[in-house]
């Protein structure tokens, strides 16, 4: 991906960006985007989309918080939260796979549903939405903030996700089926592939990814809130699409998503270091997304043809 080199080069221009230590630890700020974007890649490859993942992050966060505050052991609370989020994904998947409603509409609905449930849960405990639940035990806080073998844990987590989900998508029969369903759902059905199960399962993965992402956020801020991750959905989808996954389905890689997540994160970080406000960086990210997507189309379809066409006309002339 020459795009990546180009963008990092851009980043390098800003002073103070070159500090490797800074760079690595800045990953903590946006690791959660990558963790949610990687499973989201599966959903988008099948030709779907899941915009409820942001709400699932909040649901995950508040579930851990409330269960822990209610006296449950923190690790058990964490596992329960992940199960809840996977079930939320299952609900998305069931509706998408077994009705004709478009995924965008379904998950737009469940986005409000899950956010509402998270709010109700947080209201049920004494924690208010804004203050959240804090005071988590140290081992839990260390998930996102700790260092292992000299690298921040969030980097290890991203690498771990890259390996597991990369292998799942590119090497397994399940991953192959995900692609085939995305390329031609009907042909997949006529080939005896359990298309409904495949579609449904990708939403479960996305739910699980959202859940893990929510827990990382909770750990990072050491505070459980129902609205955590509410702004995350657009960066997550941006990372997937920027990473080369076709929004029409059938194409995409996990590695692309990971790199794009890092690019987007670094970009934010670099621009902020150079003195831009976060509002201004949003503009840059938006422009970048549009340029990248248009460039991709442009590259393949027009530039080549234009060059070839040019060359052939010049040879004709000579």
């Amino acid at each position: 991906m020459f795009l990546v080199g180009e963008l990092i080069f851009f980043g390098l221009l800003t002073p103070g960006f070159l500090n490797i230590q800074n760079l690595l630890f800045s990953m903590n700020d946006f690791a959660y985007i990558g963790l949610a974007a990687i499973p989201m890649t599966f959903v988008i490859i099948t030709g779907g989309i899941d915009v409820s993942v942001g709400s699932i992050m909040g649901l995950s966060s508040i579930t851990v918080g409330v269960l822990w505050a209610g006296g449950l052991h923190i690790w058990i609370a964490l596992i329960v939260a992940l199960i809840v989020c996977t079930l939320a994904g299952l609900l998305n998947g069931l509706i998408v796979a077994f009705t004709d409603v478009q995924p965008l509409v379904v998950t737009l609905g469940t986005m409000f549903l899950f956010a509402g449930i998270a709010l109700v849960i947080s209201g049920g405990s004494s924690a208010t939405g804004y203050e959240g639940i804090s005071g988590f035990p140290n081992p839990f806080v260390q998930i996102a903030n700790g260092i292992t073998l000299g690298l921040p844990n969030s980097i290890w987590l991203i690498l771990f996700f890259l390996l597991i989900f990369g292998a799942l998508l590119h090497l397994t029969k399940y991953g192959r089926n995900v692609y085939l369903v995305g390329i031609n759902m009907k042909a997949a059905k006529y080939s005896g592939i359990a298309t409904k199960w495949i579609v449904m399962s990708t939403y479960m993965l996305a739910g699980l990814g959202g859940g893990i992402s929510g827990i990382i956020l909770t750990s990072y801020f050491s505070s459980a809130r129902s609205d955590l991750g509410a702004q995350a959905i657009l960066p997550v989808i941006t990372a997937v699409v920027l990473g080369g996954t076709s929004i029409l389905g059938g194409r995409g890689t996990v590695l692309g998503t990971v790199i794009a997540s890092i690019v987007v994160g670094m970009m934010n970080y670099g621009l902020q270091l150079s003195g831009m406000t976060s509002e201004q960086t949003t503009i840059i990210v938006g422009v970048m997304l549009i340029v990248a997507v248009v460039m991709r189309r442009f590259n393949i379809n027009y530039v080549k043809k234009w060059f070839i066409g040019n060359r052939s006309t010049t040879t004709k002339g000579s």
């Binding site: 090497l171 192959r176 692609y179 085939l180 390329i183 042909a187 059905k189 080939s191």
Partner: peptide, 25 residues
């Protein structure tokens, strides 16, 4: 209903028998 057009000949031909290949990978 027949072809998966943006993928390879190989992936098309084996699309019907993936479940018969042994193992996860």
């Amino acid at each position: 209903h027949g072809i998966f057009n943006i993928t390879s000949v190989r992936k098309n031909i084996t699309s019907t028998i993936l479940n018969r290949l042994n193992g996860l990978f």
